[in-house]
Design a protein around this nucleic acid. Structure first.
Lengths: 194, 194
DNA sequence: TTAAGAGGTAATCGAATGATTACTTAGGAC
DNA sequence: GTCCTAAGTAATCATTCGATTACCTCTTAA
């Protein structure tokens, strides 16, 4: 297999593993197993585990930027842009580990190199919705806050309790006023992992 | 020193360490050093590192519940309750690592034991503001989303860029419309750690 | 035919880490 | 005084993990 294709497969696997276990909790061996290659090869492709995580975060940030950019460019919709971006974000939860890897990175701001990259990635989203999407800072804040709440619901696997706790049901219905089915489907697909 | 007092000191130290490094990234040795005791003693007090983290999360959740409960009981204020709870939350950021430890736990929902505890702690807050604070589910959602956004700004150490990036300034002014000074003070006190 | 380079792995190493064991010390109770 | 218990540590162990080294195996071009 070509090196670039293999590299992409490893990045996808790493995204899932880092999303589940976090930076410190994940191991290069778990990533290698998930990608179907040997552990030394993962290290050889990316140099260090830290480098691999940085690439995972960068890739995730770029995917979000690309999706939002595409949505901003759409004109064949009567829905308001914040609403459309929110729907688009929920759709992206199906890309397993994508936003969870970012969330783990967002909690590691104390790390000099990971923190700097995470701050940069976050602000790129902010700048996009303000500069290209025409959001006011207040609108951008509200949009991002909703995103962080969705991240938390995903990270907590809150969907696992949807059927057992009526309060969870109420909360998730607020967090996902339209695409609750998508979130619950994502939850179920994550459960199959274990 | 009495065992209970020592135990409390270790819990405080562990809260800071787990807040900075996360569950997997933290080590019992770092906690021990921060608490001024030996590593085996930390293990002996709490049995396992996982147990220690669970106690840190539980303690943090209880502190939040206590503060919100107290604020809900206050009647000598003309401010709306969501507003007062938000101010109270920002005040609690001064307790170093408290909310960051929770945030790390919120990203570990895939872990069977940590995840269950984290979900429980989160829903306890939700239930409090709904049942005791009289919030509608929509109000509770908005309140919690703001909290998750604040957690993210703290985890990212976004305050470090307040002076260098005007977009960061705009965003933080939205996230902390009143107590921005408190957040920036917390940021600075965290920097002194390194 | 063969040499060379790309894609990949097995074996292994050193450091870090959670946990265990055995030991030490201080302070009452009798 | 001495015994006993609670508080605490030094030494150490087994495992795990990231990284390194040496090697293997195709394909391809001269």
């Amino acid at each position: 297999m070509s090196a670039t294709r293999r590299r992409e497969l490893v990045l996808e696997a790493a995204t899932r593993v880092f999303g589940d276990e976090g930076y410190a909790g994940a191991t290069t061996d778990k990533v290698a197993r998930a990608a179907g290659v040997s552990q030394p090869y993962v290290v050889r492709i990316f140099g260090t585990k830290e480098n691999l995580f940085l690439e995972v975060m960068e890739r995730a940030g770029n995917r979000l930027l690309a999706a939002f950019t595409e949505e901003i460019a759409r004109i064949d919709s009567e829905l308001a842009l914040p609403h459309r971006l929110g729907l688009r974000y929920v759709t992206m939860l199906q890309d397993r580990g994508l936003v969870l890897s970012l969330m783990h990175g967002f909690a590691l701001g104390a790390d000099p190199v990971i923190g700097a990259s995470a701050r940069c990635g976050f602000m790129n989203i902010y700048r996009l919705v303000v500069n290209e999407g025409g959001f006011t800072p207040a609108e951008a804040y509200q949009f991002l806050a909703g995103g962080m709440m969705i991240n938390t619901m995903l990270g907590l696997r809150m969907g696992d309790e949807f059927d057992t706790d009526p309060d969870v049901r109420d909360l998730l219905r607020e967090a996902f006023p339209e695409k609750l089915d998508v979130f619950l489907a994502v939850t179920r697909s994550h459960q199959e992992r274990a």
